[in-house]
């Protein structure tokens, strides 16, 4: 995963509320089994919602990314260059998927979001710094944002989650399994059941 520390660059806005992942990435393109190159399908059926390629920061309406869990939505946005999303709230699974792909969804309160949105609309440069957890908006006071410490660290260092869990927690997982097997043996036997035949 590419680390995310500071992001400046072209910003765009999609101020509509409830833009769901079906709109971001229409279902019929889910037949593609690759992760790369999906940007061309983003907002395919909604010409009014185009995100220009090269957009690094996207300011969104409330509940952006609600609906389907399809990770193709953040993959497509990432393919267009998006690294940071700023909005009033995000679909939960979408937000989790963003973190897994080196993208930062930032939730702001209404006043601060309006400032960022106005700045982007006016074409001002904004810069997001994950180290200091600040958004610099042109020559105004910068805006603080919060992010889960573990997720922040994962983004800053570009961690490979599977690799880290396997390297760091194998013993804890094994001992959990041992404890669970002793506490609820029926579960482990039911697990072995086969549906074949």
């Amino acid at each position: 995963m590419t680390p995310l520390v500071r992001v400046t660059g072209p910003a765009a806005r999609l101020p509509l509320a409830n833009i769901d992942t079906d709109i971001i990435f229409p279902a019929r393109f889910l037949l593609i089994t690759e992760k790369a190159g999906l940007g061309r399908y983003a907002f395919h059926d909604r010409a009014d919602l185009a995100v220009p390629p090269g957009t690094a920061i996207l300011v969104t309406g409330d509940n952006f990314g609600c609906g389907s869990s399809r990770e193709q939505a953040p993959w497509a946005l990432a393919d267009l260059g998006v690294r940071v999303l700023i909005g009033a709230g995000f679909g939960e699974i979408f937000a989790a998927n963003c973190f897994k792909n080196g993208m930062l969804p930032i939730v702001l309160g209404p006043g601060e979001l309006a400032r960022v949105d106005a700045a982007v609309q006016a074409g001002a440069v904004i810069a997001v710094d994950l180290e200091t957890q600040e958004i610099a908006v042109a020559d105004q006071d910068s805006i603080r944002f919060s992010v889960e410490p573990a997720r922040r660290e994962a983004l800053l260092s570009g961690w490979d989650e599977i690799g880290r869990i396997r390297a760091g927690y194998a013993a804890q997982i094994a001992s959990f399994e041992q404890r669970q097997r002793a506490a609820i043996p029926w579960l482990w036997r039911a697990q072995q059941g086969s549906l074949n035949g």
Binding site: E71, N97, I165, I173
Partner: peptide, 17 residues
């Protein structure tokens, strides 16, 4: 519900953050 990346994590390690 989870995404495809988390699906891979569960296949590989049976856990999720």
């Amino acid at each position: 519900g989870i995404g495809a990346s988390e699906c891979g994590t569960v296949l590989a390690a049976q856990v999720l953050w």
